[in-house]
């Protein structure tokens, strides 16, 4: 506390810790002192009121995030517990036992596994035990466990390639999540439509409607909003999804059309290889860098190649297992 004579201005009051505590507590703490101060020095009342007003104004606009504390704490706890603990020698024996059990489990899984594979240049529709449908793009494989589709047991499928999912909604319980394992990425779903790409350790998820949760390794999960797309890069996930500029880029293949959105020819060549198993060669390497935007019919390879020739103004020659662009 300073000598009362020292309190000359608003600044003097606001910078005083004792006064500050009184004001911040809505005149709760130290109230007696400051009331009697005002009685004693009526000349300072106006300044005190001004100081209090400024303090109140400054206190406003504080948006509270206290409601998020519990959720965030649970997330932190999960992250703490996920940290691997150092193995101890006595754990070795236990580890071996677990490994043995795992390999037994693995063979059990092999026996119970069901899978559908689409060939080059062909789509395949799969209806899963829960009524969900999956349209497999060419050269893709979907697998699942035969006897694990009862309500409350969780629904797990594995995708290698590309597919459009239409997932049946069972309940809002986490046990009824539909989980797609795509390489290192897990996509958790309640009921929704989305496109998932998983080739060469690259994943890309485009959400058409509903909501999906993506997780990878130990990274924090990310929730996708309809119209958003997320692509991974070398086994790591970006922090944020982005709005898809051309949604049909991810879904038009289900209608036998290919959409390009500023795609360069080497990307298109990779798509042809993924879907038709044909290598593409460029006679002039400059062609590779050309960029195309547009939609072409892709009912079959001949139609696609015809369309590409027109769109790009190039010649495409088919030779055994490869295509030559010139």
């Amino acid at each position: 506390m300073k000598d009362p004579v020292m309190y000359q201005s608003v600044e003097d009051f606001l910078e005083d810790d004792h006064f500050f505590e009184w004001g911040m507590s809505d005149q709760g703490s130290h109230n007696e002192f400051w009331q009697s101060f005002q009685d004693q020095y009526p000349g300072k009342v106006a300044i005190i009121e001004e100081a209090l007003l400024l303090l109140q104004e400054l206190k406003l606009e504080q948006s509270s995030h206290a409601d998020k504390a519990s959720q965030s704490w649970e997330k932190l706890q999960a992250r703490i517990n996920r940290k691997p603990k150092k193995p101890y020698p006595w754990l070795l024996a236990a580890s071996i036992t677990i490994l043995l059990m795992l390999s037994v489990g693995f063979s059990w899984w092999m026996i119970n596994a069901e899978s559908v594979k689409s060939g080059y240049g062909a789509m395949k529709e799969v209806i899963l035990p829960d009524g969900s449908t999956v349209l497999l793009r060419a050269n893709s494989e979907l697998s699942w466990k035969k006897n694990a589709w009862k309500k409350g047991e969780g629904r797990h499928v594995w995708l290698d390639g590309e597919a459009y999912f239409n997932v049946m909604h069972l309940s809002n319980s986490p046990e009824d999540y539909f989980i797609v394992h795509a390489g290192e990425m897990n996509v958790s779903v309640l009921g929704t439509s989305f496109n998932l790409f998983n080739r060469r350790n690259e994943q890309s998820v485009f959400l058409e409607e509903g909501s999906v949760q993506l997780s990878m390794n130990d990274e924090a999960p990310l929730i996708l909003q309809p119209g958003e797309v997320l692509s991974t890069e070398k086994g790591s996930m970006p922090d944020q999804a982005r709005k898809a500029t051309t949604p049909s880029f991810y879904t038009s293949w289900t209608q036998h059309k290919w959409t390009f959105d500023a795609s360069d020819l080497s990307t298109i060549a990779q798509q042809i290889k993924d879907n038709y198993g044909l290598e593409v060669e460029f006679e002039d390497s400059m062609i590779k860098n050309r960029v195309v935007t547009g939609t072409v019919p892709a009912n079959n390879l001949d139609v696609l190649l015809e369309a590409l020739q027109v769109l790009l103004d190039i010649d495409i020659v088919k030779e055994k297992e490869r295509l030559i662009f010139s």
């Binding site: 948006s63 998020k68 965030s72």
Partner: peptide, 17 residues
């Protein structure tokens, strides 16, 4: 770990803001 939780809950709002 309880101490961690106490600190977390006490300062979460201010630190996040």
């Amino acid at each position: 770990v309880n101490a961690l939780e106490k600190l977390f809950r006490k300062y979460f709002d201010g630190l996040l803001s």
